[in-house]
Amino acid sequence: MSVLENIGRLEIKMFKAFTDTIMFAFKVIFRMFQRRTYSSAMRMVLLNQIYFTSVQILPLFFIVSIILGSLLVGIVFQLLKQLGLTDFFGNVLMGLIVTELSPFLTVLLITLRSSAAINTEMAVMKVNREIKTLEIFRIDIIDYLILPRIINGVISLVLLSSLFSILLLTSGILFSRLIFGMSIDVYSNIILNSANLSDIVISLIKCAIFGFFITLIPIRFGLKASQELTSIPIVVSGGMVGVFTAIIIIEVLSLITKLF
């Protein structure tokens, strides 16, 4: 009986956590569309967040994109040539690499860097009672702390993922010339024919959803920290697991929508 009880308790706890997160997400989205949210203080925080998430890592991001992206494109092209599937390289490049791998790799990069930092920051602020101080001074936590980070997540992920895709396609020019002996005109024609506007739009929306949840979930977990310092690693690890679960769920859902 106790095993069943434990299973039931766990399921209820998970379901409750899931619904709480969704409700919180709705609350945040509602606040996002209110004009009064965008005060001077909030804009300053948002600016700083975008700077630390996207601009500061740009050089590293370029290097990783070019190296990883080029290698990926090169290997895929080589494989297609060996299998005699050169006719499909446009579809593979656009359908798989640009619309699937590019957002996924970007989200992993941002999650490992920014989500972990946000999670820890929130937990430490909670432990140090900084959250309480802000509340005493009637500074809305959602407006000042949460929304800038979430908006930053959305903007950064969409822009960085697009940048990654652009760099991939550019390195594709080089590899298509080396491996297939293809000129730029032929390459761009193939890409244009394979590119589907709806797929690209879905990919951008997916990036925005990724960005939303990889910032929302760490914030929620960080705010669950208690007054003890020992609660910090617990909420951080829980938050990161939650983030990776959300990434997988969103990825699966986007693949399902592609089927239809």
Binding site: S39, S40, M42, F137, R138, I139, Y144
Partner: peptide, 16 residues
Amino acid sequence: ALIKQYHENMPRHKAE
């Protein structure tokens, strides 16, 4: 400066 910035929507440099 955050207090002035947030409550009165003052630009950062002015609050500073």
